[in-house]
């Protein structure tokens, strides 16, 4: 067991029962996040990336599998987690317009974690002001309501709230996808600075591969609840193996010629993601896969380690069978 992992997710499953059957939102995934790193989780809608984040932070209890945080099992849901654990794991949501209560002032929002964890022993104004300054917002914002702030400013408030309790691990669930590009850059840079300053580990969830390229040290890509490829960022972008990874890379709109050159040429996007209730048998990507083999609709591939730290779940690379 290595000690440099802050988070280990082992065979995690999260199923939701609905009237028409069972949705396998997260279906047997495993990964680790090292101390101080940014681990990227990429996927399109319905891939289960957000559910994974929600299970780790405790909003849902897992159906099965284990989550180890600093070596201790934390698989219980949010209600059964001790307060000390809630202090260590925080989350920043996608849309700050919905993650900040419109009826509470910025001060009330930021001081909630301070009060719950009794950080200031009484007067919180000083600490709230410090937190606002840290995210480069004017202290006068304390008495304002979220609706009076711009989208980027709201997300800064959400970040200040997450940092208020000095966490060691933050789940960033699409923190900038609701924001404009010119604001995104500022928020991402701030997050990267705080990571160094406070020695934070991030689980960065996004559908934006270009963004992921610039923030993550390792990347896992999810498709219909499963991780299909996991690699270091360099390896992932310059040597993508899974056909889905290639399809996603080829679909990204880019603006420079150098980027255009990086995109896999031979593959173009076809088909759509099937509904969560009709996950195809075998490899769930096979109906859209341009390189599919005979075996793909029958047998689900195993996760294979192609090179050190580069894992892929695809029959194309299973040379034992070939």
């Amino acid at each position: 067991m290595s000690n440099d992992n802050i988070l280990e997710v082992i065979n995690l499953k999260k199923y939701f029962k609905v009237s028409k059957g069972t949705i396998k939102a997260v279906d047997d995934i495993s990964f680790t996040v090292k101390y101080g790193e940014t681990f990227g989780l990429v996927g399109e809608s319905g891939s289960g990336k957000s559910t994974t984040g929600h299970v780790i932070v405790g909003l849902y209890a897992p159906t099965s599998g284990r989550i180890l945080f600093e070596g201790a099992d934390i698989s219980a849901g949010v209600e059964r987690r001790p307060l000390s654990l809630k202090k260590k794991i925080q989350m920043v949501f996608q849309d700050p317009a919905t993650s900040l209560n419109p009826k509470r002032t910025i001060k009330q929002i930021i001081e909630l974690p301070l009060k719950v964890h009794d950080i200031c022993h009484g007067d919180t104004s000083q600490k709230v002001a410090e937190l606002l300054q840290m995210v480069e917002l004017p202290v006068e914002y304390m008495d304002r309501y979220p609706t009076e702030l711009g989208g980027g400013e709201k997300q800064m408030v959400a970040i200040a709230r997450a940092l208020a309790v000095n966490p060691s691990f933050i789940i960033l669930d699409e923190p900038t996808s609701a924001l404009d590009v010119s604001i995104q850059a500022k928020i991402i840079n701030m997050l990267m600075r705080f990571q160094k300053e406070f020695n934070l580990s991030y689980l960065f969830i996004t559908h934006n591969l270009s963004l992921m390229r610039n923030v993550a040290s390792r990347v896992a890509i999810m498709y219909l609840g499963k991780i299909v490829e996991l690699a270091s960022t360099e390896e992932f972008f310059y040597n993508p193996l899974h056909p889905y990874t290639k399809m996603l890379l080829s679909s990204i709109p880019v603006i420079t010629d150098e980027e255009e050159a990086m995109k896999p040429k031979k593959i173009i996007s076809t088909g759509e993601i099937p509904g969560a209730l009709n996950v195809p048998p075998g490899c769930s990507f096979h109906p859209r896969c341009p390189e599919r083999l005979e075996i793909c609709d029958k047998v689900e591939p195993f996760m294979l380690e192609i090179s050190s730290g580069h894992l892929v779940k695809c029959h194309l690379y299973d040379f034992t069978k070939a």
């Binding site: 850059a185 934006n208 270009s210 990086m262």
Partner: peptide, 16 residues
Amino acid sequence: LLAAVPKLTGGGIPEG
């Protein structure tokens, strides 16, 4: 605006 778009080629994100 063009500078602020994250690039697939990496190199970090410039200030927006």
